[in-house]
């Protein structure tokens, strides 16, 4: 698992990266009531806003942590946004992307680096 400063997590299987928001992010947002996901087939750049997650309190963009093409979006969290609060770092993933450069995954923060980053906030 790798992490971004925008509080996304990424896991890699072959060339397919699965992206979600971290437990820290879901806790800060509070009860999630709406999720908007990218369409399969959309090309996304690293750092591009491509999803939206809204809680009762606020709306927040979710950025693509890496460059590639969206291959799947998780309809389950659109149908039941509260899953994001229950399972942010497992079944409530947001989307999967076929990476343009799988090696770029390694440049993201690992768990220890993300934890250290959280402690600076």
């Amino acid at each position: 698992m790798r992490y971004t400063k925008d509080h996304e997590w990424v896991s890699l299987a072959g060339t397919i990266a699965t992206v979600g928001i971290t437990n820290h992010a879901q806790d800060a947002l509070g009860d999630v009531v709406f999720v908007e996901l990218p369409e399969a087939g959309r090309d996304v750049e690293e750092g591009e806003a491509c999803s939206v997650v809204e809680s009762v309190k606020a709306a927040s963009d979710v950025y693509s942590p890496l460059t590639g093409r969206v291959v799947e979006a998780n309809q389950a969290i659109v149908d039941e946004p509260g899953l994001v609060n229950q399972a942010a770092e497992s079944s409530a993933w947001f989307f999967k992307i076929e990476l343009a450069d799988p090696a770029a995954f390694d440049a993201l923060m690992d768990a220890a680096a993300y934890q250290a980053f959280l402690e600076t906030l």
Binding site: G30, D31, V33, S55, V56, K57
Partner: peptide
């Protein structure tokens, strides 16, 4: 307090 541990939905 913007919310307590129960969360806004539950509180509402």
């Amino acid at each position: 307090p913007v919310q307590y541990p129960a969360g806004i939905l539950t509180e509402h």
